[in-house]
Nucleic acid binder design. Structure first.
Lengths: 347, 347
DNA sequence: CTGAAAGCGCTTACAG
DNA sequence: CTGAAAGCGCTTACAG
């Protein structure tokens, strides 16, 4: 194996100093056209690629973005495993990161100590947080002086960090309004946990607004939560269990609003396995519009959000913040849209 | 913002040289118990975290593993987007990487030039390739002197690199045998492209072996391919289209073997939308056993592979190779298992 | 057992 | 417009 080509080799070859090579590489200072050409040619002939590690060390900038997942069982396994949601998001992030010459590092964070050491060790330029984290972590974040963009989080943190969200309240409203318009009155709402997930809380507000407008009183027996703490993932399995609870309910439920397509699919499966039909017996609305929605029977009515674009926007925001460090906290709110398919029908 | 704590600060605080701090950090050479204690304490009190960038530069080792996806449209978007397969795999990789103090960098590779510069720039310690790449890339790989583990690839490359696979031939055999045992004779086989994907080719061999054993002649009209080149992703959509082709077939097909659950689900959807029933009119077998298989109706009979474990094994193999560079090319073949659910029935 | 010094491959005031 | 030199934060022969 040959020795690595360094800036010094290029300098020697082009008969200039390493500093000059660095100048042309960085487009800094005025280097004469003639010299620049010689250097560029040397770079080409020697097949030279600058070493990012060295650049990071001397520039104090790594061109590395960390994507942080909340953890379960010491791996982001559970969170990502079933839900194509995260695939899409990461895809969006990656595409803009690469365009801007950043690489992405993915990790799950199990505890604060792990987080702290990880960020410090790697000299990350910026961080993207996906989803919900324990409050302690947000405090820890403040101590670390790099740009952070939060995705799918609300409330107190919003005022401190940048973030990108969708109009969750409207999403909950549209889903519910759709069912109300179809004549449904006993509409269940299925969330993870609205105390813990402010995203779900907003959607729940939208649900209540739609009921309110239709003069339908809120009935707490129609409200279902799947999780008790931060450690829950959205899985088909927990959707399925909620489906069974709905079957046991005495509230004469005819329609169901959920905060995730995964839940909706799990619920529908439970209903169908117990001999109920969708949408004849129950109308069901999902949330997200993952591609699968089109390929189950019945196809799933859902609130669409552009997850890929969410990833893109978050990455752009972060990279902007990295490049112009003065930028202030701000929020982007992306639109949502109701997609009507075959899992809902008039009562 | 306070200045970063360096090894020098620690050294000063503990009243030793930076070299000594480095020794205790690396557990190298014998440092006296007493000195070591002082250093450790200084590290704790100053809240010191070694800078990986600096370590990388001086050790010539980044503790970074690259996960490389094959690309479409300049992002790994399409490949990953619909298929939870990759989630699981990455989860498995991440969990062992983190345990061993490696971080993972994710990228898609659009062209060779991009690949080359990416690997060189980042001083990656090792590479994991997911899926299929153009032959040119394999040649390029050889030139770069770092450990590589290929996942889901076969043939000439196998002899050069390490890789982890499953017993694909057996998978194809088990799926087909199951249908044969149920009395089916006209069994379709759906692949991406067996010229391009040796994985699919092996499964196809298994399919033919099962037919052979049952004295059923191979009928080329029962063989369906979805892709024409390297650029295809496995999507519900292409499964759906194959489903429509199957409906149009005059071969009196009663059963279908596929190389992916995603295809199977797309196919079933097409069949159902056109008024056919599964398994009454068609028995369908998937491949992979993604979690969704349990939550569609009918639940999907499939060939299970442990994707998570595949990721773990690949990461272990790679890290071993990084730590003991002498290790030779080798292969791991993971088992497969038929999971019978409701999408298949006796003819 | 411990430390001074050179080096990893780049960047960047500073001087000319 | 160009270069010598110091520095980024570590590691590692080498010497003692």
């Amino acid at each position: 194996m040959s020795k690595k080509t360094t800036i010094r080799d290029v300098a020697k070859y082009a008969d200039v100093s390493p500093a000059t090579v660095s100048y042309v590489l960085n487009g800094v200072k005025k280097v004469s056209e003639e010299t620049k050409l010689r250097v560029l040619q040397a770079i080409g002939e020697l097949n030279y690629y600058p070493d990012f590690t060295a650049i990071s060390l001397s520039k104090r900038k790594s061109n590395l973005i960390g994507i942080v997942f909340s953890l379960i069982d010491n791996s982001f396994a559970e969170v990502m495993r079933e839900n194509p949601y995260y695939n899409e998001m990461i895809s969006g992030i990656e595409i803009v990161a690469r365009k801007k010459n950043f690489d992405i590092l993915i990790t799950g964070i199990g505890n604060i100590e792990e987080y702290r050491s990880w960020v410090k060790k790697r000299n990350l330029d910026g961080l993207l947080f996906l989803g919900l984290f324990p409050p302690k972590l947000y405090n820890e974040m403040k101590k670390i002086d790099i740009p952070i963009v939060l995705i799918d989080t609300y409330e107190e943190y919003t005022n401190v960090y940048k973030n990108v969200n969708i109009n969750d309240e409207l999403g909950g409203y549209l889903a519910t309004k759709h069912l109300v318009d179809l004549g449904h009155r006993n509409i269940a709402f299925v969330a993870t946990n609205i105390k813990v997930s402010l995203v779900d809380e907003r959607r729940f507000q939208g649900y209540k607004r739609a009921l309110n407008e239709a003069k339908i009183p809120f009935n707490n027996n129609l409200f279902f939560e799947t999780l008790l703490n931060f450690e829950g993932a959205i899985t088909f399995e927990s959707g399925y269990k909620i489906g069974e609870q709905i079957l046991e309910s005495r509230e004469n439920i005819t329609a169901i609003v959920t905060i995730s397509d995964i839940y909706a699919i799990g619920i529908i499966n439970a209903l169908q396995k117990h001999g109920k039909r969708v949408p004849e017996d129950y109308s069901v609305v999902g949330f997200d519009d993952i591609s699968m929605c089109n390929y189950i029977l019945p196809s799933l009515t859902t609130v669409k959000q552009d997850i890929f674009n969410k990833g893109e926007e978050a990455a752009k925001m972060l990279i902007d913040a990295i490049e112009i460090p003065s930028s202030k906290p701000k929020s982007i709110e992306l639109p949502v849209k109701l997609i009507v398919r075959d899992s809902t029908k008039p009562l």
